[in-house]
């Protein structure tokens, strides 16, 4: 079998050459995915921030090899053109251009049957005790979570970077569980609540290790709500 395979090997043929190139290319792509795009025709990316169905505008952080840009206004846009010499800058996209570019994609947008909002509550250092401010707002949070339109509740615990990763993972878990207990004590059905925790890995404010950051000592409650349809 081996001999047969050996005799069939193409010697110094074009096929051999192409095959070798193709395979080398494939290996290259696997390890350096970024290089993949060099082979394609050059493209430019345009990103536009939009208001959601309720008119709320979030924020986006767009990164490229030429730098990072934040968008936080409705219809603010940024273009990433690898051939332009200047770095990316933001501009406001005109309605006509917006419709021309995205009309078809907008028409295909799935209908909203639910919406998602969230509450963030902050904790004292190395503790499962809420800050006085957050503690005062708990009543309003619980009242909102007892409304009939709630479809699902997710409680996610976080910690700042003071202390070890492992310790902070545990701490964020304790905070999330403490929050669930608070909600249940306030009358929120416990079977609706899912608890997750991310330790120090997903900060609200990026910091160096071993830095205290009150805004990162938090629990977020993410709520999925039914949208009342008018018809």
């Amino acid at each position: 079998m081996d001999i047969l395979a050996y005799r069939q090997w193409p010697h110094r043929s074009a096929v051999c050459f192409v095959h070798r190139r193709a395979q080398a290319w494939l290996i290259f792509c696997t390890f350096f995915a970024a290089i993949f795009f060099v082979g394609c025709s050059p493209t430019k990316s345009v990103v536009v921030l939009l208001p959601d169905a309720e008119g709320r505008v979030g924020d986006l952080r767009v990164c490229s090899s030429k730098g990072e840009i934040e968008l936080d206004k409705a219809y603010q846009s940024v273009a990433f053109d690898p051939q332009s010499k200047s770095g990316p800058s933001t501009s406001s996209m005109q309605k006509q251009e917006f419709v021309n570019r995205f009309g078809d994609a907008l028409a295909a947008e799935p209908e909203m049957t639910s919406r998602i909002d969230f509450f963030t509550l902050y904790y004292q250092t190395d503790s499962v005790e809420l800050t006085p401010d957050s503690s005062r707002s708990m009543d309003a949070v619980i009242a909102s979570l007892k409304q009939v339109d709630v479809l699902g509740l997710y409680v996610i615990g976080h910690a700042d970077r003071l202390g070890s990763k492992r310790y902070n993972r545990k701490l964020s878990q304790k905070r999330a569980v403490a929050m669930k207990n608070l909600l249940v004590a306030g009358g929120v059905p416990s079977d609706r609540i899912r608890v997750s925790f991310l330790g120090e890995t997903d900060p609200q404010i990026e910091t160096d290790d071993e830095v205290q950051e009150p805004l990162n000592r938090r629990v977020r409650i993410v709520v999925k709500r039914q949208i009342e349809t008018s018809d």
């Binding site: 795009f37 979030g58 990164c63 490229s64």
Partner: peptide, 19 residues
Amino acid sequence: PTASIGIRGTRFAVHVEEI
């Protein structure tokens, strides 16, 4: 191909066009 978008809960549109 030229950008990476980090999302903090929002709605946006993207167009990748050939130059």
